[in-house]
Simulated assay, not measured.
Amino acid sequence: MNIRGVSLDDFYAVTNDVSRRAYEGNVIVAPEARWSRRSSFNARLRVVNSRGPGARTAASGRHGPYACWHAYRDVLWQMFVANPDATARTALATYRGQSGFERDYPATRYRVVGSVAYPVSMAALCVAEGCGAEGPPFLRVPDECDPRPLAAEGSDDVLARIERELRQAEIAPPEPMVFEGPVSLLDAPDLAYSGR
């Protein structure tokens, strides 16, 4: 990832602090971290033990020195708390400032990184069970952190039903799309029949 608005030394300090407090010191900055320009640097997070806290597998299931989605979340969140105007560009998204990170990062949890035959989300690759459960406060379940009361289940109010369904959609992972219709001659779904 490419980071701007933070010094490399500060990024090392944030990573070490988060790693020590949440991942038993297993998460580190990869040794190839370097300045790319005067005002930005390239860095990756790695783990010392590929089966320890903060580690993940590859989409294929292979263990390696890969830091999990939760470790990146916690390190970047702490970095943005200390430097609210920083920018981080990763393979999943570009986060501009703390508000941009808090808005965009939770959606990357369900980003499919596996193959078409074996789809898997980023957060499902964690090695340790319950990894990142005590994450930053902005990732709490919406019902717990939303101060507005939730309408009663039997309520006929249209707006209350819509709000209830939207809150449920925020909690649930996206469902994969399934094509229902005839297959064309080339063994591909015939899109002319979709939706009928």
Rank of each mutant, 00 (worst) to 15 (best):
M1V: 04
M1A: 15
M1E: 10
M1D: 09
N2Q: 12
A13Y: 12
V14H: 01
N16Y: 15
R21P: 04
V27F: 10
V29H: 09
E32C: 08
R34F: 15
W35T: 13
F41V: 09
R44N: 15
R46D: 08
N49G: 03
G61N: 04
R62V: 12
P65K: 14
C68T: 02
H70Y: 15
H70P: 03
Q78T: 08
V81W: 06
A88F: 02
A88N: 03
T90H: 06
T90P: 00
T94L: 07
G97L: 03
Q98G: 00
D104R: 05
Y105M: 01
V116W: 02
S121L: 07
S121W: 05
M122E: 06
A123L: 01
A123Y: 00
L125P: 05
E129N: 06
C131I: 00
P136I: 08
P137R: 11
L139I: 08
L139F: 07
P142W: 10
R148Y: 10
L150H: 11
G154M: 13
G154L: 15
G154I: 13
R161W: 09
R164A: 14
E165V: 02
L166W: 09
Q168A: 15
E170V: 01
A172I: 03
P173R: 07
P176L: 12
S184Y: 06
R196E: 10
